[in-house]
């Protein structure tokens, strides 16, 4: 007999080693995430996949499923906390969607829609991190970084280049590139790198292709992030 746990009262089957998030999505239940990616081990930094398992808050992406667990995810309490986390990300960076090339394809924005975030609520930090336009093909706007480290991991583990790393600590944490000059142009970064094509928000942008897709036809104009995620999961 397959093992299962209950997600918001629905039975979800799982195999040993599967996380709560993986099992839930495979069974057609959406649990949100920003830093999780199927090609990488769980990271657990964005905390949007927070669920309540057997009464305790855990990250669904990093928690192995357990037989008989009762997991709460799509509840007013948990969704409220997810909204709070999204609001924290929205005030921490500069997220001016109307002028961002990633608008319509941005996962942070799409999650804002999914969880009906109407206001950033808190005081804005308005960070001032200089943009790096040195590279011929790619622009970096660090002010939109959500610290998911997908570019760091992709460049290190897939491209074998380690173009990106995080430095600083706490609220001063920031992304740096692998060059003494601090300029992307002085690294071996290429627009075909996996790291160049994995940013869930608008930090790593390809030059000369912005705003090419008309409004109405962009990724999240066509489907909500939950619809898109579940569709991809089942294909």
């Amino acid at each position: 007999m397959t093992k299962q746990f209950l997600l918001d009262g629905q039975p979800v089957p799982f195999e040993d080693g599967q996380t709560v998030l993986e099992a839930a999505r495979a069974a057609g239940h959406y649990i949100p995430s920003l830093c999780w990616h199927k090609d990488f081990p769980p990271h657990g930094s964005c905390k949007l996949c927070v669920v309540k398992a057997a009464g305790r808050h855990v990250s669904a992406c990093a928690t192995p499923a357990k037989e008989g667990w009762e997991v709460e995810s799509n509840t007013p309490e948990i969704n409220g906390e997810r909204r709070g986390l999204l609001q924290m990300l929205l005030v921490e960076g500069n997220h001016f969607c109307p002028s961002c090339e990633k608008s319509g394809d941005c996962e942070l924005q799409a999650l804002g829609y999914e969880y009906e975030v109407l206001t950033p609520r808190f005081r804005h930090f308005f960070p001032d991190r200089p943009v790096d336009a040195s590279h011929p093909d790619v622009l970096l706007d660090f002010n939109r970084c959500i610290f998911c480290e997908l570019c760091v991991r992709a460049s290190r583990d897939i491209d074998g280049k380690s173009v990106f790393a995080l430095t600083g600590r706490g609220i001063d944490k920031h992304l740096v590139v692998n060059a003494e000059s601090g300029r992307l142009a002085d690294t071996d970064f290429a627009k075909t790198d996996r790291a160049a094509n994995i940013c869930p928000v608008g930090v790593i942008l390809h030059k000369r292709v912005g705003f090419a897709v008309p409004i109405g036809e962009r990724t999240f104009d066509l489907a909500t992030i939950s619809e898109k995620t579940l569709k991809e999961g089942s294909s």
């Binding site: 001016f96 969607c97 109307p98 002028s99 206001t119 950033p120 804005h124 308005f126 001032d128």
Partner: peptide
């Protein structure tokens, strides 16, 4: 009621903030 991006998060004018 806050109506629109600028009222909600400063919007385009707030891009002078840096």
């Amino acid at each position: 009621i806050a109506l629109g991006a600028c009222a909600v998060n400063g919007g385009l004018p707030a891009q002078r903030n840096h």
